[in-house]
Amino acid sequence: MEKKSMKGYLYLAPALIIILIFTIYPLIRAFMLSFMEDYNLVNGSYKGINLENYIDIFQDRHFIKALTNTGIYVVFVVPCSIALSLIIAVLLNSHIRFQGVFQTIFFLPYVTSTIAIGIVWGWIFNSDYGLLNQLLSWFGIKSIPWLTSKQYALPSLIIFSIWKSMAFDILIFLAGLQTISEDLYNAARVDSTPRWRVFWRITVPGIGPMISYAFVMGMINAFKVYNEVYALFRGKNGPAGSANTVVFYIYDKFYNQSKYGEASAAAVILFLIVLGLTIIQRTLTGKKE
């Protein structure tokens, strides 16, 4: 027995070591850093162990702005992406022609680099000759400065991110839809079930676990939003920081301002928010089963 378990740990060792060095250690380190006042990366000195960093960031209006922005972002991106993906997945699953082609098209954003997509959307959003404004002009809407005004920066980011995160959601919903027995739909037909009721009573519950999974993953990813901001605003956080997010704030504090403690404190706050929401979500869906 002893020997056998030794062998098992040996197999696990390479992965464990990498996780320890690159995930667990930084996690603990960041947690510690968040309590160290004025930490110096070069000589490792700090003024004291206290809550100064936390007090500082909560008094920093940029952090509050980043936090609200991220909150708004999550509230819009996750449900919108799930709702739209659900509709598209159901349509894709309904034996339409060129199903494979459509599936590929909708999945492309997932495998394409965010930076590349950002550049394309940069053009779509362009206020002078962007596609979106062109489209809106047909409905008599005046050209909107999507990426260059404080007012529209966050909505632009949200639109872009909804589109981007739909790829993954559609994929798992499609996989889920295929597990629902065709017989259930036939039974519903014989029972003369209206379409909307088929959707709400058979389709949605049938892929309930996938929706719940998409919700958790979408939320975690949305709270960590950084790449999308970087890609859309060419490395900036929007005009006058109007599209700042928590992770962008952390990055900026750490690398540009060298405020390691405050960056770590913000990271811990983000971690606690995500942890809290995940626990709430799990208890809610756990009860249903």
């Binding site: 027995s181 259930l184 029972d191 003369s192 049938g206």
Partner: peptide
């Protein structure tokens, strides 16, 4: 099918898995 006045029982029964027995029977 819904206008033929038939009752159909599937090989795997095709009961609606997220509804109770009562809801299943009431559904039609």
């Amino acid at each position: 099918p819904e206008d033929r006045g038939i009752g159909l029982v599937f090989q795997n029964y095709a009961l609606y898995p997220h509804m109770t027995v009562e809801d299943n029977i009431m559904f039609p």
